[in-house]
Amino acid sequence: MKTIDKVVYAVLFLICSIGLYFGLTDKEFFDTYYAQEDGLVEYGTALMLFIISLICLYRLITISKGKSITWKIGTLLFAILFLFGAGEEVSWGQRILGVESSEFFIENNAQGETNLHNMVVGETKVNKLIFSQLLMVVMVMYLIVSPILYRKKEWFKQLVNTFAVPMVKWHHTIAFLTATALVVSNPAGRTWEVYELVFGAIFILIFLAPLNNSIFKKES
């Protein structure tokens, strides 16, 4: 484990622990100040997702020569995915720029904002169905199941490498499980904002130095 990993994990543990303390002792302070809307936690998450997108774009520009078309497609899709996540996190800068939502979003968005994750379809909140439940399943598969398959199944290893999917190291998985335990123990309403921040930080570490780092080297 590199020094940067240790530093990031120490900071995340501190953030989660302090959040847990306030969640147990003063939920109002946690929700209103610590993990507030448009606060450091939320903007921190957006920044980390944006950085991951930049990492992917940088690789696409600097080392894609000689790589397969599937490698390029995978890297581009990750760049788009994390850019989308960053934009959604801050409602595409709407609140920062003071832009009013259109009538469509006012009527169909739970918070009246210009984003997709707070949309309401019928009685179902998209955020709860897709961005919470489904995303959690994907995270568990990626952070826990895929590292096992990558090490044991050659076909899976080849598939992952072909589409330039950065593979998780065990310390990433341990960090994820530790953060999950701390966040689940927090009874505050906005505790998942901290969880998103943790995800962003862990994913930066994964994308910077994945287990299959060799596939992100420049072709000689």
Rank of each mutant, 00 (worst) to 15 (best):
I61P: 10
S64Q: 07
T70E: 11
E103I: 11
L135I: 13
K65P: 01
F163G: 05
R151W: 11
F82T: 08
G74N: 06
L81A: 13
A79Q: 03
G122H: 03
W92M: 05
E103W: 02
H172P: 07
L134K: 01
V99R: 15
M119A: 09
F78H: 13
V99K: 14
I174P: 00
L143Y: 04
F163N: 00
L143A: 08
F82L: 12
M139G: 15
A164T: 07
I148H: 05
E113K: 07
I63L: 05
L135T: 12
F82E: 02
V160C: 11
L135Q: 09
L135E: 12
E154H: 13
W155V: 13
G98D: 00
S146K: 12
V160W: 06
K125Q: 11
N127M: 07
S101T: 07
G74Q: 03
K153E: 15
I106L: 15
S102N: 07
A86S: 13
Q94M: 11
S101W: 03
L135N: 13
I73V: 15
A110H: 07
V140R: 02
F131K: 04
I174L: 12
T70C: 08
W170G: 09
T124A: 11
S102Y: 04
S68L: 05
I80D: 02
K72F: 07
V137I: 14
K65W: 01
E113W: 04
L81Q: 09
F104D: 05
H117Y: 03
E107Y: 03
F78D: 08
I69S: 14
L83V: 02
E154S: 11
N161D: 15
W71I: 12
S102V: 04
G85V: 01
F82W: 10
W170D: 12
V90S: 06
